[in-house]
Nucleic acid binder design. Structure first.
Lengths: 212, 212
DNA sequence: GTCTATACGAGGATAGAC
DNA sequence: GTCTATCCTCGTATAGAC
């Protein structure tokens, strides 16, 4: 019984793109957990299946890797927001935008943490180059239209958009803190809880602007 | 002109309590910027006026210092929330709670970051011992009462309380990110901006639950 | 393209004088 | 109680073989 055991994750089969994306995945995980400063290149490599040296081969240094992770993350979130049709009724469009944001965070749970860290720890340095506008812009537009058409209260669209994003992401970013508020054993990332978070968030967002 | 120059911050005058609290202040600042892992004991000492050795004299290690900072931070936030009179009309009580939370974050801008980091980076490990319940409990109570008395929609009180805290703190935690959304040079911590954030947040929170 | 081995600086922690 | 000097691990990054 002396079979040759496979490598813990995947064979090193000289596929550049595959390797790069494996590194990006592991790095995203680590940066989401610990931020740029707290992340350990060692830990990234360990979860990658390839060695630390490869990281430096493809991404020149830790910061380069971080930036690549961030760029991919922004691309994903922007694309999730832009898939939403915002040209219909303002109320529906708002509901769909909030849903999309939460669905996307539920699907890729690293993103909220990645963005939060970028602000907290990195002072939004890379955001300056990347332009986060495209994430907030659709919400702002829908709010503006809702106000014009008389469906929504006269809120400040930008502040309100920021507050709505706050509703969506705080649940994810604070999950380890707020889990103590729920019955022991509750899984905040379980399907029922995610569904309820989405429901409550969507209803709260819509109710908060809809004219009575 | 060979005057003896004063120490950069304060004299080392053998006052234990004063020294401890100076260390705590500097540590809070550093932990708020970088989190437990990212924080540098060197940096804390540098802003303290006393040496690194003193840190280890009073707080056994980096983790001990972190825990002390967190405990003080929780005490402050809980006390800010408990000062609010929540026994009057539900709508007023809710408005006052949200105001208090934002005022407190405006006053001590490290707290939102400290709590966010505790969840993101430290998996809420210290929260388990400290009990964060007292921060959310007043909001939950007020929401429950508002629902009972028929003033508020039938929301889930806990989820909604979490979402409302999200509204309050996201502005602060994401400040370096979202500042790119405002005209260049806007100071998100300036009095006008803070006032507007409070106004928008309070109105949004109240409108989101008030029955039409 | 991928690996092993290692250089080197940063940073947490302590010893011991005053 | 406070300081200076130092230890030593950990973690980023590179050299060089395959």
């Amino acid at each position: 019984m002396s079979l040759i055991l496979p490598q813990k994750t995947a064979p090193s089969c000289r596929d550049a793109e595959a390797t790069k994306s494996r590194i990006l995945d592991a790095a995203e995980e680590e940066f989401a957990k610990n931020g740029l400063r707290g992340a350990r290149t060692e830990a990234i490599a360990a979860n990658t299946g390839v060695t630390k040296a490869m990281m430096y081969y493809y991404f020149s240094d830790k910061e380069g890797l971080y930036q690549a992770v961030l760029e991919r993350a922004v691309r994903r979130r922007v694309s999730a927001m832009q898939k939403v049709d915002i040209d219909g009724e303002a109320k529906t469009a708002l509901r769909d935008l909030i849903s999309a944001l939460i669905d996307e965070a539920s699907h890729n749970q690293n993103l909220p943490a990645i963005f939060m860290y970028e602000g907290l720890q990195n002072q939004g340095r890379f955001y300056a180059q990347i332009s986060i506008t495209s994430v907030y812009a659709p919400i702002v537009q829908v709010l503006e239209r809702g106000i014009e058409t008389g469906q929504f209260r006269k809120v400040d669209p930008l502040h309100t958009a920021i507050n709505m994003v706050g509703i969506c992401v705080h649940y994810f970013c604070s999950a380890p803190n707020i889990k103590h508020l729920f019955p022991p054993g509750t899984d905040l990332y379980g399907p029922e809880m995610l569904e309820q978070h989405k429901k409550e968030a969507v209803e709260l967002a819509v109710a908060s602007v809809l004219l009575r």
